[in-house]
Amino acid sequence: NRHQFAPGTFSGVLQCLVCDKTLLGKESLQCSNCNANVHKGCKDAAPACT
């Protein structure tokens, strides 16, 4: 399954699913299917969408 990433819209601090570093809103993407949160630069390394 493929992620459907869109710019993240969340408040607070989240961790990137891929690199475990802190996500800030402006550099984040969120999958509309599984709600995975990743950095824009990490999206290609994200595991399959669940």
Results as ranks from 00 to 15, higher is better:
Asn1Pro: 02
Asn1Asp: 11
Asn1Cys: 05
Asn1Glu: 07
Asn1Tyr: 14
Asn1Lys: 09
Asn1Trp: 05
Arg2Met: 15
Arg2Phe: 14
Arg2Ser: 09
Arg2Gln: 12
His3Asn: 08
His3Gln: 02
His3Pro: 01
His3Ile: 04
His3Ala: 03
His3Ser: 05
Gln4Asp: 07
Gln4Ala: 00
Gln4His: 14
Gln4Lys: 11
Gln4Asn: 15
Gln4Val: 04
Gln4Phe: 14
Phe5Glu: 01
Phe5Ile: 03
Phe5Leu: 05
Phe5Pro: 03
Ala6His: 10
Ala6Pro: 02
Ala6Val: 14
Ala6Tyr: 11
Ala6Asp: 09
Ala6Lys: 15
Ala6Thr: 10
Ala6Phe: 10
Pro7Glu: 08
Pro7Ile: 05
Pro7Arg: 03
Pro7Gly: 04
Pro7Val: 05
Pro7Tyr: 04
Pro7Trp: 02
Gly8Lys: 06
Gly8Trp: 02
Gly8Asp: 06
Gly8Phe: 07
Gly8Ser: 12
Gly8Ala: 12
Gly8Glu: 06
Thr9Met: 07
Thr9Val: 07
Thr9Glu: 13
Thr9Gln: 08
Thr9His: 06
Phe10Trp: 12
Phe10Gln: 14
Phe10Met: 14
Phe10His: 13
Phe10Ala: 12
Phe10Arg: 08
Ser11Ala: 12
Ser11Asn: 15
Ser11Arg: 06
Ser11Cys: 05
Ser11Gln: 14
Gly12Val: 04
Gly12Cys: 03
Gly12His: 06
Gly12Pro: 02
Gly12Ile: 03
Gly12Gln: 03
Gly12Leu: 04
Gly12Tyr: 02
Gly12Thr: 04
Gly12Lys: 05
Gly12Asp: 14
Val13Ile: 14
Val13Leu: 14
Val13Lys: 15
Val13Trp: 09
Val13Tyr: 11
Leu14Phe: 14
Leu14Ile: 14
Leu14Ala: 13
Leu14Arg: 08
Leu14Gly: 10
Leu14His: 12
Leu14Met: 12
Leu14Gln: 07
Leu14Cys: 11
Gln15His: 11
Gln15Ala: 09
Gln15Ser: 05
Gln15Ile: 09
Gln15Tyr: 08
Gln15Asn: 15
Cys16Ala: 00
Cys16Val: 00
Cys16His: 01
Cys16Glu: 03
Cys16Ser: 01
Leu17Met: 11
Leu17Lys: 14
Leu17Val: 07
Leu17Asn: 08
Leu17Arg: 11
Val18Leu: 04
Val18Gly: 11
Val18Thr: 04
Val18His: 04
Val18Arg: 08
Val18Gln: 06
Val18Cys: 08
Val18Ala: 08
Val18Phe: 05
Val18Ser: 05
Val18Asn: 07
Cys19Ser: 00
Cys19Leu: 00
Cys19Thr: 00
Cys19Gly: 01
Cys19Arg: 00
Asp20Trp: 04
Asp20Arg: 06
Asp20Lys: 13
Asp20His: 05
Asp20Asn: 06
Asp20Glu: 10
Asp20Val: 04
Lys21Gly: 08
Lys21His: 06
Lys21Asn: 06
Lys21Trp: 03
Lys21Ser: 08
Lys21Cys: 06
Thr22Ala: 09
Thr22Gln: 15
Thr22Gly: 12
Thr22Asp: 15
Thr22Arg: 10
Thr22Glu: 13
Thr22Ser: 10
Leu23Ser: 10
Leu23Asn: 06
Leu23Gln: 05
Leu23Met: 08
Leu23Pro: 04
Leu23Val: 12
Leu23Phe: 03
Leu24Ile: 11
Leu24His: 15
Leu24Pro: 14
Leu24Cys: 13
Leu24Gly: 13
Gly25Tyr: 05
Gly25Met: 12
Gly25Leu: 05
Gly25His: 11
Lys26Asp: 15
Lys26Gln: 14
Lys26Asn: 15
Lys26Trp: 04
Lys26His: 03
Lys26Tyr: 06
Lys26Pro: 12
Lys26Thr: 15
Glu27Lys: 00
Glu27Asn: 02
Glu27Asp: 06
Glu27Cys: 02
Ser28Gln: 08
Ser28Thr: 07
Ser28Asp: 15
Ser28Gly: 14
Ser28Tyr: 05
Leu29Trp: 02
Leu29Gln: 04
Leu29His: 04
Leu29Ser: 09
Gln30Lys: 07
Gln30Leu: 03
Gln30Met: 06
Gln30His: 08
Gln30Ser: 10
Cys31Pro: 01
Cys31Leu: 01
Cys31Tyr: 00
Cys31Glu: 02
Ser32Leu: 07
Ser32Trp: 04
Ser32Val: 09
Ser32Glu: 12
Ser32Cys: 11
Ser32Thr: 11
Ser32Pro: 14
Asn33Glu: 11
Asn33Ser: 10
Asn33Pro: 07
Asn33Asp: 12
Asn33Lys: 10
Asn33Leu: 12
Asn33Met: 10
Asn33Val: 10
Asn33Tyr: 11
Cys34Glu: 01
Cys34Thr: 01
Cys34Pro: 01
Cys34Val: 01
Cys34Gln: 01
Cys34Trp: 00
Cys34Phe: 01
Cys34Met: 00
Cys34Lys: 01
Asn35Glu: 14
Asn35Gln: 04
Asn35Arg: 10
Asn35Ala: 09
Asn35His: 06
Asn35Tyr: 04
Ala36Gln: 13
Ala36Ile: 13
Ala36Asn: 08
Ala36Gly: 10
Ala36Glu: 10
Ala36His: 11
Asn37Ile: 06
Asn37Trp: 05
Asn37Asp: 06
Asn37Glu: 06
Asn37Ala: 07
Val38Ser: 05
Val38Arg: 02
Val38Tyr: 04
Val38Glu: 03
Val38Leu: 10
Val38Trp: 03
His39Gln: 02
His39Leu: 01
His39Pro: 00
His39Val: 01
His39Phe: 01
His39Ile: 01
His39Lys: 02
His39Gly: 03
His39Ser: 02
Lys40Pro: 15
Lys40Glu: 15
Lys40Thr: 14
Lys40Ser: 15
Lys40Arg: 10
Lys40Val: 13
Lys40Cys: 14
Lys40Met: 14
Gly41Phe: 08
Gly41Thr: 11
Gly41Tyr: 06
Gly41Ser: 11
Gly41Ile: 11
Gly41His: 06
Gly41Val: 11
Gly41Gln: 09
Cys42Lys: 04
Lys43Trp: 09
Lys43Val: 11
Lys43Asn: 09
Lys43Phe: 13
Lys43His: 05
Lys43Ile: 12
Lys43Leu: 10
Lys43Met: 07
Asp44Cys: 08
Asp44Asn: 11
Asp44Ala: 08
Asp44Gln: 07
Asp44Lys: 08
Asp44Pro: 12
Ala45Arg: 10
Ala45Cys: 11
Ala45Thr: 14
Ala45Leu: 12
Ala45His: 13
Ala45Trp: 09
Ala45Asp: 14
Ala46Val: 14
Ala46Met: 13
Ala46Lys: 08
Ala46His: 08
Ala46Trp: 05
Ala46Arg: 09
Pro47His: 07
Pro47Tyr: 08
Pro47Ser: 14
Pro47Leu: 10
Pro47Arg: 07
Ala48Lys: 12
Ala48Ser: 10
Ala48Trp: 06
Ala48Pro: 15
Ala48Thr: 09
Cys49Asn: 04
Cys49Phe: 02
Cys49Pro: 03
Cys49Lys: 07
Cys49His: 02
Cys49Val: 03
Cys49Ile: 04
Cys49Ala: 06
Thr50Asp: 13
Thr50Phe: 15
Thr50Gln: 13
Thr50Met: 05
Thr50Ala: 11
Thr50Arg: 14
Thr50Leu: 04
Thr50Gly: 06
Thr50His: 02
